[in-house]
Design a protein around this nucleic acid. Structure first.
Lengths: 215, 215
DNA sequence: ATATAATTGTGAAATTAATCACGACTTGAT
DNA sequence: ATCAAGTCGTGATTAATTTCACAATTATAT
C-alpha cells in the first residue's frame, strides 16, 4: 500500500518498539534516546535510529525522541486505530493461551471466534470468545481475513484448504506442517519444535564468550 | 565448537530439514531432490543446496540426495544422539502445550521438570513430567542448562535472575519481556503478540500479488 | 552405446541488513 | 554567551544472505 521501501527486517521490529514505547508512556516518561530503547528491546541503537529514519525525522538531535509523539506516530503506522479481527482454529492448550492473551488492549487485534472439533468445547466461551464447531467454519468466518492455526499437524492441510476457499489473506501457522497456499496468501510459520531445537544447536555450536565482568 | 563457518540463517533451517527428512524416511522414500524438498519446506531449492554444501558434498549430481544418508548425517550434526534436558518454567496453557508436545521422540529433547507457583499444579504430573513449586528451583535444576520460560511478563526478571545464578546457558523466552542476561547466556525470544501484529502489518502494507492461475 | 533429462555444487552477482563514524543540532550548566 | 555533553540522521562501509546460472555428473530410456 504505502511505502514498500521499508525493509522487512525493520517492519518486524515495529511491534516491538510499539510495545516498549507504550510501556514508557505508561511510566510517565516524556523522552527517550535510541540508547535507552536499545537496552530495553535488545536491538542495537544504530539499528533503531536507522529503522526510525525510514519514516522520516522523528527525533531531535541532542534530545532524543518524544515518547508520546513517537507512540502516536507508530499507532498510525501500525494501523492501531482500527481493530483487526482474527479467528482461532484449534482450542487446545496453545489455542487457549492465545484466547487468554489480551491482544485487543495492546495490539488492537480481536480474536472474534474460535473453532474446535471437540464437542465439549463447542458452545462454551473462553475469555469472551465463543467457540464453534470446526464444521461451522464456512458459515461463521464472514469478514475475517486472518486465522491463527493451532491444530494438530494432520489436520493442517484440510483446514488450510477451507480457509483459502473462504478468502482468508493471512495465516499464523503453529502446526509443524508447512502448509501450501496460493501466492496471494501470506503464511507466517512459528514452529515450536524447530525453535527449541535451533536453540539447542546454537548452544552447542555457537558458544557465547563469557565477559570479563559477569554480574 | 566445530565449524563456526555455518551461517546462522542456515543453522536455523537445519531442524526443519531434519524433520522433513524424517517424514520422507518414514514414508519409505529413498531419494529426494532439492526441488522436492523445496516444495515441502517452502525454502528455495538453491538455498537448500547452498545450505547443504556447507557440510560438504552430500548429494550426487543428476540424482539428488539419499534420504537415509542425509538423515543420518543431520542426526549427528544436530546432536540427535544425545538427549538434551530442559526445564519448563510456568505451567499455564502455553507451558502445558509444551509438555504435551513429544520433543523426545522427534528432537531428542526431554522436558525433565516443570515449575509453577500454583499449588494446585505442584505435585502433579503432566505427560510424565513432574511439576514442582517455583521456590524449589534452586534444588531441582541440577544439571539442566536450558529453560523454556512461559510465565507472566511481570515475573520474567526475577525468574531469569534465578536461572542465571543457577548456571543456565540458554533460555527460550515466551514472555513479552526482553530479559537481561550476562553475555554468555543465549536467549531466543518468541513474542506471540509481536508475531501476530507483524503478520497484520505485512498483510496491510505488503499485499501479495495474486497469480494468474489460482487453484 | 548413445542421447536426453535431471540434478548437484558453486562461482559470481544481487539483495538485504547491520554497523561505523561523524557532522549537525539541542540542551543545560556555568 | 559560551561551552560541554548528549543525541540524531545518514553517507559509507561491511557483513550476511539469497539467488542466478551453468559446467559437471548421473540416471534412464531407447
Amino acid at each position: 500500500m504505502d511505502q514498500n521501501k521499508i525493509p522487512q527486517a525493520t517492519a518486524k521490529r515495529l511491534p516491538l518498539y510499539y510495545r516498549f514505547l507504550n510501556n514508557l508512556n505508561h511510566q510517565g516518561k516524556r523522552r527517550v534516546s535510541s540508547k535507552e530503547l536499545s537496552e530495553a528491546v535488545k536491538v542495537d541503537s544504530a539499528t533503531i535510529r536507522r529503522d526510525f529514519s525510514y519514516f522520516g525525522a522523528l527525533g531531535k538531535k541532542g534530545y532524543g525522541y518524544n515518547v508520546e509523539y513517537l507512540l502516536g506516530f507508530f499507532r498510525k503506522t501500525l494501523d492501531q486505530d482500527e481493530v483487526t479481527d482474527v479467528a482461532l482454529i484449534g482450542v487446545g492448550n496453545l489455542g487457549t493461551a492465545f484466547l487468554n492473551y489480551n491482544f485487543l488492549k495492546n495490539n488492537n487485534i480481536r480474536i472474534q471466534i474460535g473453532f474446535d472439533a471437540d464437542t465439549d468445547k463447542v458452545g462454551t466461551t473462553i475469555s469472551d470468545v465463543p467457540i464453534y464447531h470446526i464444521d461451522e467454519l464456512e458459515e461463521k468466518m464472514e469478514g475475517i481475513e486472518v486465522a491463527i492455526l493451532t491444530i494438530p499437524a494432520e489436520e493442517a492441510d484440510i483446514v488450510t484448504e477451507k480457509l483459502v476457499n473462504l478468502g482468508i489473506t493471512g495465516i499464523l501457522n503453529f502446526t509443524p506442517a508447512r502448509i501450501t497456499v496460493p501466492n496471494h496468501i501470506r503464511v507466517h510459520h512459528i514452529d515450536l519444535a524447530v525453535e527449541l531445537q535451533a536453540l539447542v544447536y546454537f548452544l552447542k555450536h555457537y558458544p557465547l564468550k563469557r565477559n570479563k565482568v559477569d554480574e
